Amino acid sequence: MIHSIGQLWRAWAALTLVLLVMLTLLLPAGDPISPRRSAPDGLLELPVVWSPVDPAEARAELAVTTLWGPRPTTGASIQAEPTSTAPAWFLSGVFMVQQQRHAVVAFEETAEEPLQLAVGEALPDGSVIVVIERDKLLIRRPDDQDLDWLHVNTPVIP
């Protein structure tokens, strides 16, 4: 039995020595354990995630498309004689600013700037936006006051 601190330290040292001897006997002989091993060439190369893009190319691409796909064709160019002088337009997309949705209305003629409209504002045909959803608008038509849905990339011919 251990009666003093000195005996306790000697027992502790003897137990530690026995554990170290057992570990050396149980571990296989050979190369020491290395947490890092050499990898084949090319295995540790990181892929290129970002490369600089020419902004002129991006602007040219955005001029012919929208964030949700290519600009829709309205078929207005197929008609022999245009019925009105107002340009065809479509709902290009929806975005949020400070928890409020806004609609982006683009025109077929790229010379005109897209409109950014909120609830209560009028569309180019005079319809008023009632509700803006994630991919569509609920609008009130000016002529008959009916409510209609206008979906993204659906062309509107005046």
Score class of each variant (00 low, 15 high):
Glu61Leu: 15
Ile129Thr: 03
Pro87Thr: 09
Asp41Glu: 09
Leu19Thr: 15
Gly69Ser: 09
Val48Cys: 06
Gly69Cys: 05
Met96Ile: 10
Trp9Val: 06
Thr154Gln: 15
Glu121Gly: 03
Ala76Phe: 07
Ser4Cys: 02
Leu91Glu: 06
Gly120Ala: 09
Leu117Tyr: 14
Leu27Met: 04
Val131Thr: 04
Leu46Ile: 14
Ala13Gln: 15
Leu123Thr: 13
Leu137Lys: 03
Gly42Val: 06
Pro35Ile: 08
Leu26Met: 05
Met96Thr: 10
Pro114His: 01
Ala58Tyr: 04
Pro32Cys: 14
Arg134Tyr: 04
Pro40Cys: 01
Thr74Phe: 00
Trp68Ala: 09
Thr154Ile: 00
Pro70Leu: 05
Ala86Asp: 12
Thr83Val: 12
Val49Pro: 08
Ser84Pro: 02
Trp9Tyr: 10
Arg134Cys: 12
Leu20Phe: 12
Arg101Lys: 13
Leu150Asp: 11
Leu91Phe: 02
Pro155Arg: 14
Val21Ser: 00
Arg141His: 08
Ala76Asn: 05
Leu123Gln: 03
Ala11Leu: 04
Gly93Met: 08
Ala39Trp: 12
Glu61Trp: 04
Gly75Arg: 04
Ser84Tyr: 02
Ala29His: 04
Ala58Asn: 07
Pro155Cys: 14
Ala86Leu: 05
Asp125Ile: 04
Asp135Tyr: 13
Pro82Tyr: 01
Ser51Glu: 12
Val105Trp: 00
Ala13Glu: 15
Ile132Gly: 07
Pro87Glu: 14
Ile139Gln: 10
Ala60Ser: 11
Glu109Pro: 02
Gly69Glu: 00
Glu57Met: 10
Leu117Asp: 03
Met1His: 08
Val105Ser: 08
Arg36Cys: 07
Val21Ala: 03
Leu138Asp: 15
Leu8Met: 08
Pro155Asn: 02
Leu147Cys: 11
Val64Ile: 07
Ala13Gly: 09
Val152Arg: 02
Val94Phe: 12
Thr154Arg: 06
Ser34Lys: 08
Val48Trp: 02
Leu67Thr: 06
Thr83Leu: 05
Val105Lys: 00
His151Ser: 07
Ser38Ala: 13
Glu45Val: 13
Ser51His: 14
Leu117Ile: 03
Ile33Ser: 15
Gly42Glu: 05
Asn153Val: 09
Ile157Gly: 15
Ser77Tyr: 06
Trp89Tyr: 12
Ala122Pro: 10
Arg10Lys: 13
Ala58Lys: 12
Ala14Ile: 10
Gly126Asp: 00
Ala118Glu: 05
Pro52Asp: 03
Glu61Thr: 13
Asp143Ala: 07
Thr74Val: 06
Trp149Phe: 10
Leu27Trp: 08
Glu108Val: 02
Glu61Val: 02
Ala56Cys: 10
Ala63Gln: 14
Arg141Gly: 05
Trp50Ser: 13
Asp54Tyr: 11
Met1Trp: 07
Ser4Ala: 13
Ala63Asn: 01
Met96His: 11
Leu19His: 09
Thr65Gln: 03
Arg36Leu: 15
Ile129His: 11
Ala14Phe: 09
Trp9Thr: 13
Ala103Pro: 10
Thr16Leu: 12
Pro28Ala: 01
Glu108Pro: 01
Ile157Glu: 13
Gly126Ser: 07
Glu133Trp: 14
Ala76Thr: 08
Gly75Met: 01
Met96Asp: 14
Ser84Phe: 11
Ala111Trp: 13
Leu8Lys: 05
Arg10Met: 15
Val48Ile: 11
Pro87Arg: 01
Ala111Arg: 12
Gln145Asp: 14
Val48Ala: 03
Gln99Leu: 07
Leu19Trp: 04
Ala11Trp: 15
Leu44Gly: 09
Ile5Trp: 14
Val130Ile: 09
Pro28Cys: 05
